[in-house]
Design a protein around this nucleic acid. Structure first.
Length: 391
DNA sequence: GATCCACGGGAATACACGGATG
DNA sequence: CATCCGTGTATTCCCGTGGATC
C-alpha cells in the first residue's frame, strides 16, 4: 500500500462516524459469508455434493442462472465453508512432501475471469493444493501439469473444482476448458457455473447434473440490500422505502441492486451526510447503465486496461466524441504510459467484450468511414472508487 | 537460461461515399 | 441504373520482442 492510501485510511478513521464504514464490504463485486435467502439453492447444491460426506466424489455438474442471481455468492460461500470443514478435523496441510492423504475431498474455487490461459488454470489449482508458493515464471505449462498430476494421484479422495464464469466473453472457451480438465486425473470433479442454460452450452455430455438458480424475487432483494447496508454502512443509513425502490428498479438483479446502493452511499458520503437521501438513490439508479456489465468483470481486467478505463470515465463529452479523440485524450494523461496505438486497441478490445459499447458518433466528418464513440456499460463512480481503493 | 504473456506496431480488412464506368 | 473504383477512415488481426521472474 502506498503512503497516500495509508494517510487516506487514517484520515477516514479520525473523522466522525462516516456513512461508509467499509468500502470493501460495500463493493458489489464482493461476496459475503452468508448470502441471504438462498437456503433452497444451498440445499440443492448440498444434495449434489452429498457423496463428499462419505468421502466420495460427486459427478460433474453445471450451475446456471441469470446475471445477478447470486451464483457466485452462493458457490464461493459454500466452498469456503466446505474447505474449512475438510481441513479442520486433522488440520491437514497439503504439501508435496506430506505423507498420507486427506480423508475427504478438497475444494477449490477457480474464477475464469482471472484465468486467461492453460498455464494460469493449472497454476491456480496447484496453488490451492499446496502450501508453498508456486512459481509463476520459468516453469513450463507441461511441468506444472505434471506436478499437479503427481500431487492429485496422492489424493485418494479427490478434489472438487468450482469453475466460475464459464462461457463469459473474454474467458477460455468451453472446448479448451474441457481439454484442461482432460489433462487432470480422474479423481477431479468439477462444478461449473455460468449464465447460459445448459442446452445452449456444449457441456451436456460432461455434466451429469444441472442446477438452476432463479433470479431474486423483489422482497429478497430488499433483504439483500438491508443486509449489505447494515454491514457496510453506519446505522439507519438506508431506509426500507429506499431499499424497496431500488429493488423494484432492479428486476431481480442483485449485482445492480448492490451497485445502486454503493453509488448512492458514495454520493451521500461525499456530501458529508450520514444517511442516504432520495436524490442519492435517484441519481444512483440513473448512473447504472441497463443492462450493465458486472463490476467484477471490469475489475478483473489487466491493470493497464483498467488504467485506460479510469481515465476514460473522467473525460468530458467532446473528448469522447470518437474513438480517435478518446485515444488522444487518454494518451495525453500522465498516468497512462501506453502508446496511442495500444490505447486505441484496448478501447476496441473492451468494446468487443462488452465492457464499453461502441455507438454511432454524431460528429460530422464527410470523408471516410464514420467514427463511433464508446459508452460505458458500468457505473463510473463505482468503478473509480473501487479502482482508486486498489491503488 | 527458461518461461509466459503483455505491448507495440503495423499490416490487412472493412466500411462509407462520391464519382466514374458500362 | 447497377457496379466498380479510389480515397480516406475505422476496425480487426497478427506476431515478434522484451520485461519480469524463477
Amino acid at each position: 500500500m502506498d503512503i497516500d492510501a495509508r494517510i487516506k485510511r487514517r484520515r477516514r478513521q479520525d473523522e466522525s462516524p462516516r456513512l461508509i464504514q467499509d468500502y470493501e464490504t460495500l463493493s458489489p463485486a464482493a461476496h459475503i459469508d452468508e448470502p441471504s435467502d438462498r437456503g433452497p439453492v444451498f440445499e440443492r447444491l448440498l444434495d449434489h455434493l452429498d457423496p463428499v460426506f462419505d468421502s466420495r466424489l460427486p459427478p460433474n455438474a453445471y450451475v446456471y442462472g441469470p446475471f445477478g442471481s447470486g451464483k457466485s455468492a452462493i458457490v464461493t460461500a459454500l466452498f469456503t465453508h466446505l474447505e474449512r470443514l475438510s481441513t479442520e478435523p486433522r488440520s491437514v496441510i497439503y504439501t508435496t512432501t506430506r505423507a498420507g492423504s486427506p480423508t475427504s475431498p478438497g475444494f477449490i474455487y477457480v474464477d475464469m475471469r482471472e484465468t486467461t490461459s492453460k498455464f494460469t488454470f493449472y497454476h491456480r489449482v496447484l496453488d490451492a493444493l499446496v502450501d508453498e508458493p508456486v512459481p509463476e515464471h520459468g516453469i513450463s505449462t507441461e511441468k506444472l501439469q505434471e506436478r499437479l498430476h503427481d500431487l492429485l494421484d496422492e489424493f485418494t479422495t479427490g478434489v472438487v473444482v468450482a469453475v466460475d464464469h464459464v462461457g463469459e466473453p473474454n474467458t477460455t472457451d468451453i472446448d479448451e476448458l474441457i481439454e484442461m480438465f482432460a489433462g487432470l486425473p480422474s479423481n477431479v470433479s468439477w462444478l461449473s457455473i455460468g449464465r447460459k442454460p445448459p442446452d445452449q452450452i456444449a457441456l451436456s455430455e460432461y455434466t451429469a447434473t444441472t442446477i438452476q438458480v432463479k433470479r431474486y424475487q423483489r422482497q429478497m432483494l430488499v433483504d439483500v440490500l438491508m443486509t449489505r447496508a447494515s454491514e457496510g454502512l453506519s446505522r439507519q443509513a438506508l431506509n426500507h422505502e429506499q431499499a424497496r425502490q431500488i429493488a423494484a428498479w432492479a428486476d431481480g438483479n442483485a449485482h445492480d441492486v448492490l451497485a445502486a446502493l454503493f453509488v448512492a452511499a458514495d454520493r451521500a458520503d461525499q456530501a458529508g451526510r450520514s444517511r442516504i437521501e432520495k436524490a442519492d438513490v435517484i441519481s444512483a439508479l440513473d448512473e447504472i447503465p441497463q443492462p450493465s456489465v458486472s463490476l467484477g468483470r471490469v475489475l478483473a481486467l489487466p491493470d493497464n486496461k483498467q488504467a485506460v478505463l479510469r481515465e476514460l470515465v473522467d473525460l468530458d463529452e467532446d473528448e469522447r466524441a470518437s474513438v480517435t479523440a478518446t485515444t488522444e485524450a487518454i494518451s495525453a494523461r500522465p498516468d497512462v504510459d501506453l502508446s496511442p496505438g495500444t490505447v486505441k486497441r484496448f478501447l476496441y478490445e473492451m468494446a468487443e467484450i462488452g465492457i464499453v459499447e461502441r455507438v454511432q458518433s454524431d460528429v460530422e466528418n464527410r470523408k471516410g468511414r464514420p467514427p463511433s464513440r464508446v459508452e460505458l456499460r458500468f457505473p463510473p463512480t463505482a468503478f473509480s472508487r473501487l479502482y482508486n481503493l486498489k491503488q
